[in-house]
Simulated assay, not measured.
Amino acid sequence: MQNILIKVLVNAVAIWVATAVIPGVEVSGDSTGRTIVTLLVVGAIFGVVNAIIKPVVKLFSFPFYILTLGLFAFVVNALMLELVAWLSDQLSISFTIDDFFWSAIGAAVVVTFVSMVLNLVLPDSD
C-alpha cells in the first residue's frame, strides 16, 4: 500500500513540475488545497493508465521503439497524458493539455525525467 501511495505522489509531483514548466498544461483548483488534491487524483489516474493501458500500447508500438532507439517512449507517454486529460475532463477534474505536439510531448519529457529522478531518490518499499 505504501508503494502505491509513493507512486501516486511521484506522479503528482511530476505532473506539477510539468504544469510549472510547460505552457499549455494546467491543473487548477479553487484553492491551494484543492489544487493539491487535484494533482493527487490526476497522479492516481496517470498511475492506473500507466499500469493498464500503457503495456498494451507499448506492445503494439514495439517496432517504433526499435526504429527510434527508444525515443518513441516520449510519444507513448504523451498519449497516456492525453488520455489522462480526457478522463479528467469526463470526471470533471481540471487537468488540461492544450495541444499534442508541444504541450503533451513536452510534458511527457518532463514527467519522465522528474519521475526517474524521484524514483532514484525515494526508497523502494518492496
Rank of each mutant, 00 (worst) to 15 (best):
M1A: 03
S103V: 03
M80F: 10
A85E: 02
V21R: 02
P55W: 14
V110G: 05
D89V: 00
G33I: 00
D99L: 00
V42N: 03
L91G: 05
L79Q: 14
M80T: 15
V49F: 14
A78H: 15
A20P: 02
V42C: 01
P123K: 13
L118S: 12
V37Y: 11
L39N: 01
G47S: 12
W102D: 04
F46P: 10
L120E: 12
F74C: 05
A85W: 13
L59R: 07
T35K: 05
V117A: 13
L122N: 11
F72L: 11
A14I: 06
N3V: 00
A85H: 09
F72A: 13
V114W: 14
S28E: 04
N77M: 07
G33R: 01
S103A: 11
T38E: 10
V25G: 02
S92H: 15
M116Y: 15
T96K: 12
V10E: 08
L79V: 13
S28C: 00
A85R: 07
E26W: 13
P63C: 10
F60N: 11
A51G: 07
F72W: 15
F60Q: 10
I6Q: 15
F100M: 07
S92D: 15
D89E: 04
S88Q: 10
V10F: 05
F101H: 14
F64H: 08
P23D: 02
V37M: 06
S125F: 15
I66R: 14
L91D: 06
L81D: 05
S94V: 11
T96Y: 15
F60V: 09
V117G: 12
G70H: 15
S115L: 00
F62H: 12
T32G: 01
D98S: 04
W86S: 07
V42R: 06
F95K: 06
A107H: 13
V49C: 10
G43A: 03
N3Y: 08
V111S: 07
S115W: 02
Q2A: 02
S88E: 05
N11V: 02
F113D: 10
A44P: 05
Q2H: 06
I45N: 04
N11F: 06
A51H: 09
V117T: 12
L91W: 10
L120I: 08
D99V: 00
F113C: 06
S31W: 05
I22M: 09
I4N: 04
V121K: 08
K7Q: 07
G43Y: 07
L91E: 09
D30M: 04
L5I: 06
A51T: 09
S31C: 01
W86F: 14
V8E: 12
T38L: 01
Q90E: 03
R34G: 01
L87H: 04
I15T: 00
N3F: 07
D98R: 11
V76M: 13
F62Q: 13
I93A: 00
N3H: 07
G43D: 06
L79K: 15
F113Y: 14
V41S: 01
M1G: 02
S94N: 15
S88A: 13
I15K: 02
V25W: 04
Y65D: 08
P63D: 10
N50R: 14
A73N: 13
L69R: 15
V21T: 03
G29D: 11
I4T: 08
V27M: 03
G47W: 15
A107R: 06
S61W: 15
V49I: 12
E26G: 02
V110M: 04
M1Y: 08
L9Q: 06
V17L: 02
L118V: 06
